[in-house]
């Protein structure tokens, strides 16, 4: 692998839970609980998981919108784990974010021109004339008419607003964009338009993406590699095709089988999970997923090291006896398979 543009090591983001009479700390939400990943230049890493698994918090911690509790984030060779807002400012040029809801991430009182010009002004790019030309160029690139620049966010549909959000993110020609559920709020026909735009921009500009979403088909389509997150931890990470065709972790298998595909196939086998994702406030002590499926080996995982192991070249999976087939577990743990 090339020198990664982004390198995350054992990142933890814990939020205090306040309670009691004096609002003292009574616990913590382990939103992100020991995540390591790399993204190569020009690569898309897809991050999937259900709500509350910590995927958005991870994205926000990477762009420094949330403070890390422990671990490190290195961007373009620099450790930015504790870089403050001022220190981040020159880096914002290279590290951008696209949000799920462009209604909330675009300032309603600014015209589209002001929204797109702002990053250029802050970073001292060009003069008034060249900035005006760049705004037009950006609008054209994301498929909006030049007349859009004098309008306001509320005048646009969800898909168009997301195009504005993308135009703003690429205005300074960044190296990495963290995309947090960028197409989840859009209609199907508009979703594919925005996905195509992201793919084209990546080809033209050599962008890297961290693409966070809950829709597995979308993530598979846009990603080179995919990481599956469950309750604050990555449980499986591999090449996108590998994850979808040869999933190893029981949670990944359940997620994949739950996707409704738009074709009539009544013989499809479903893995139906019981219950919900457990709360990150008081997570199970051992394997979180093993706990959810009440696996008989759950007790063994309490206090055990469940970190990712490379089961096949580039295919990483949590070393968790509850979530692997006995054969895979034997490979991971080098445990001698027992004859029963």
């Amino acid at each position: 692998m090339m020198t990664p543009i982004l390198s995350v090591r054992d990142l933890k983001v814990h939020f205090p839970v306040l309670g009691g009479v004096f609002s003292s700390k009574i616990g913590s939400v382990r939103a992100v609980d020991g995540v390591s990943l790399d993204i190569a230049p020009g690569e898309t890493l897809g991050l999937v998981g259900e709500s509350g698994c910590g995927k958005s918090t991870l994205g926000r911690a990477i762009v420094r919108l949330t403070d890390a509790t422990a671990g490190s984030v290195s961007f373009d060779g620099r450790n930015i784990t504790h870089t403050g807002p001022r220190g981040m400012r020159p880096l914002r040029k290279d590290l951008q974010m696209i949000f799920q809801d462009p209604v909330e991430s675009l300032n309603a009182r600014h015209s589209i021109r002001e929204i797109l010009e702002e990053p250029l002004i802050i970073h001292g790019v060009g003069n008034a004339a060249s900035r005006a030309a760049r705004v037009k160029e950006l609008l054209d690139r994301v498929g909006l008419p030049a007349s859009a620049q004098d309008r306001y966010p509320f005048e646009f549909s969800g898909g168009q607003r997301q195009r504005v959000g993308i135009a703003r993110a690429i205005a300074l020609k960044p190296k990495l964009i963290v995309c947090d559920e960028p197409v989840s709020a859009l209609d199907v026909s508009v979703q594919s338009q925005v996905l195509n735009l992201l793919l084209e921009l990546q080809r033209e500009m050599g962008l890297s993406y961290l693409f966070i979403a809950h829709d597995l088909a979308v993530v598979k389509h846009i990603s080179d590699r995919v990481a599956v997150m469950y309750l604050g931890k990555i449980v499986e990470m591999a090449d996108a095709e590998e994850v979808y065709h040869r999933p190893k972790h029981a949670y990944t298998k359940a997620l994949l089988s739950a996707i409704p595909e738009p074709e009539v196939n009544r013989d499809k086998k479903r893995i139906l999970l019981e219950g919900d994702v457990p709360s990150p406030i008081d997570p199970p002590k051992g394997s979180a997923f093993g706990h959810r499926i009440r696996h008989h080996r759950y007790e063994e995982t309490i206090g055990a090291d469940l970190s990712l192991q490379e089961l096949a070249p580039g295919h990483w999976v949590a070393a968790d006896p509850c979530c692997l087939t006995p054969e895979d577990w034997a490979l991971v743990s080098k445990e001698v398979p027992q004859l029963v």
């Binding site: 199907v188 026909s189 338009q193 598979k220 389509h221 979808y244 996707i259």
Partner: peptide, 23 residues
Amino acid sequence: GLLASIPRMDTPRKSILPVIPGM
């Protein structure tokens, strides 16, 4: 158009999807 624009498990990865233009 709607059926074609949905990415599926067997759609070639990172390919440009057919779209319904406009809104």
